[in-house]
């Protein structure tokens, strides 16, 4: 009994010391938490404040018709098929179509374009499509129609050439 008594006292003291140490830790955490209440949040209050955007962001493709030489190379290289040229059947004039919703902003068309400045990648981000846009159906139909219009024009031209060959007088 006489041996155990001082031992138990020692243990109680050790416990108290530990408790004090924990209390200090707890108080530290408590003040840290209070301090955190007055810190600025780590997040950005989007959409009230803008998010980070570099000034050479890869955004929408801008087309300058006056410079185009109608080589259709951009259409050939475009991985998702977001560029297509349709052709007027009567006078053969080509029109450029571009879907900002299908585009993946990879810049491949800009790199391939032989005419400097005809296709430019702007820093404007693409806008999300909504249900009203009906992106896939509208674009797929336009794409198929454009290809068909070129085939029709080529066939028409061939026919005309053949006719011109048959009677060169007219």
């Amino acid at each position: 009994m006489q041996v155990y008594l001082p031992l138990s006292v020692l243990m109680i003291r050790a416990c108290h010391a530990l408790q004090d140490k924990f209390q200090i830790e707890i108080m530290k955490t408590f003040f840290k938490t209070i301090g955190n209440l007055f810190k600025k949040p780590a997040t950005i209050p989007f959409p009230a404040a803008p998010t980070y955007k570099p000034d050479d962001y890869r955004g929408l493709i801008v087309f300058d018709e006056s410079l185009c030489i109608w080589c259709r190379r951009c259409e050939t290289v475009c991985p998702p098929g977001a560029i297509v040229f349709s052709q007027n059947i009567t006078d053969g004039k080509q029109t450029y179509h571009y879907s900002p919703y299908v585009c993946i902003y990879c810049q491949e068309c800009v790199r391939t374009c032989p005419k400097q400045g005809c296709l430019i990648q702007s820093a404007e981000p693409g806008h999300p499509a909504t249900k009203e846009h009906d992106v896939n159906n509208v674009w797929n139909k336009l794409f198929a129609d454009s290809l068909e219009s070129r085939v029709t024009y080529a066939a028409e031209k061939k026919k005309q050439q053949a006719a011109a060959k048959a009677n060169p007088q007219s």
Binding site: Y52, K53, P54, Y57, R58, Y105, Q107
Partner: peptide
Amino acid sequence: LEAVCGNRIQYD
């Protein structure tokens, strides 16, 4: 990554 590649996820 966005500053280097111009895009946040699909770098290309």
